[in-house]
Amino acid sequence: MAPVAPRSGDAIFANMERVNAELFTLTYGATVRQLLTDLEEVEEVNKQLDQMGYNIGIRLIDEFLAKSNVSRCVDFRETAEVIAKVGFKMFLGVTASVSNWDADGTCCSIILEDNPLVDFVELPDTCQGLYYCNILSGVIRGALEMVSMKTEVTWIRDMLRGDDAYELQVKLLKQVPEEYPYKDDE
């Protein structure tokens, strides 16, 4: 019998190894700061953060699946719910909500009310185009790609830019069928 997928990540979060929140926030801040110094262009920093997130995501998905005991999701709706309720709770300690579904069920928004990455942060005038948390979109994109879903993740709302929440739009582009790299008789 397949294990029942947990509806919330609380139990798993309680068993995760944790680091001090301030250390985490400041480390991420220092990374972004260094990227801004090295790359100079805000656009480049956004790209780099996304790439870093992607690299995290393709590894993180394995840990996620190993520890969370979620079973195969039947559709993209369930996938989004699992990311928001279990994934975010497990790795960031916050819960997100899912809304704004389109008619085909391929595009939705993940809304974060609380985001530990941005404590203390205030965007100065020189970094107005910066998506400070762009690493998160990369993580989701990378993780979903490893379970054969090509997605596009974009920021819709950002509290650092004066909005009232963080909203990530996740759009399912296509589902890649699983392929074996070699044929049986070769």
Partner: peptide, 19 residues
């Protein structure tokens, strides 16, 4: 201290935050 903890603020530079 809160200003100082902002990773995007360079210590020793002008404080421009309107907040």
């Amino acid at each position: 201290i809160k200003i100082l903890l902002n990773p995007l603020y360079l210590p020793g530079s002008r404080i421009t935050s309107s907040h």
